[in-house]
């Protein structure tokens, strides 16, 4: 798939419903969502590139162990890099970065695409898929942070250094919001609503395209 197809039209989270576990678990604030998005992109792009380069050397029978090994390697690298360079963020999302290895979105794209395509196409597909995942994470993360904590982008300094300390917006003076949005039930409710919204827009666009076709 091309970048656009992979990111929007076949968005891994909203259209294919892949990788929902880390999506729901980490999307309670923008900074956590961004951190997981970066880590997933790193793992997705890195393993797609390696698998695509090695695709002629990996026999069909042992492709899954090989894929898992490569994904696990990149996940471990991501954890080490996070702990070395963004320690605060590591403390809050390390657990979820480690389970990127089980994110079916990554294995799925490797198996369905990267293992059969040249490196450039595989990389485009991987970046598109991760971008789609990042969009889903960020949208959900923003909504949950606004409703749950009454802020947007708080604590971005743990990702971008001390300069970013006041990038965040605080909507309430004393902080706090509807706690449920930060907890797992809130994640499910909001994810469901956003999913419905996405579906609705998609169907409307399709109906309009269909109408244009029949009229023209």
């Amino acid at each position: 798939m091309t970048f656009r197809q992979a990111a929007i039209e076949r968005n891994p989270a909203w259209v294919q419903l892949l990788g929902l576990c880390p999506l729901l678990a980490v999307s309670n604030s923008v900074v956590n969502a961004l951190g997981l998005a970066f880590a997933s992109t790193f793992v997705m792009a890195g393993s797609a590139l390696i698998i695509s380069l090695l695709r002629t050397l990996i026999p069909h029978d042992v492709r899954l162990p090989c894929f898992m090994m490569v994904i696990a390697t990149f996940t471990t690298c991501a954890v080490m890099l996070l702990e070395a360079y963004t320690f605060d963020l590591y403390l809050s999302i390390a657990l979820f970065v480690q389970i990127i290895v089980t994110n079916c979105m990554i294995l799925g794209r490797l198996e369905a695409f990267a293992a059969r395509q040249p490196p450039r196409a595989a990389l485009a597909d991987a970046l598109g898929t991760s971008c789609g995942f990042a969009i889903a994470l960020l949208v959900l993360g923003s909504v949950r942070e606004i409703i749950g904590a009454g802020s947007l982008g708080a604590g971005l300094d743990s990702l971008f250094g001390p300069d970013a300390a006041d990038w965040g917006i605080d909507f309430t003076d004393e902080g706090g919001g509807m706690l449920v949005a930060l907890l797992p039930p809130g994640a499910f409710i909001l994810a469901g609503l956003l999913l419905g919204l996405g579906r609705g827009i998609h169907e409307q666009r399709q109906a309009r395209a269909h109408l244009r076709e029949t009229e023209g």
């Binding site: 090695l54 026999p59 042992v62 090994m69 696990a72 390697t73 990149f74 080490m80 890099l81």
Partner: peptide
């Protein structure tokens, strides 16, 4: 044999990658 060789090859590539990143990040960690 081919499966064995290729899976070993992939493992070696992965090990090299891990060793490199570990060497680079260990002091910071």
């Amino acid at each position: 044999i081919k499966s064995l060789v290729s899976i070993t090859g992939v493992a070696l590539v992965c090990a090299a990658l891990l060793a490199g990143v570990r060497y680079q990040t260990a002091p910071h960690i």
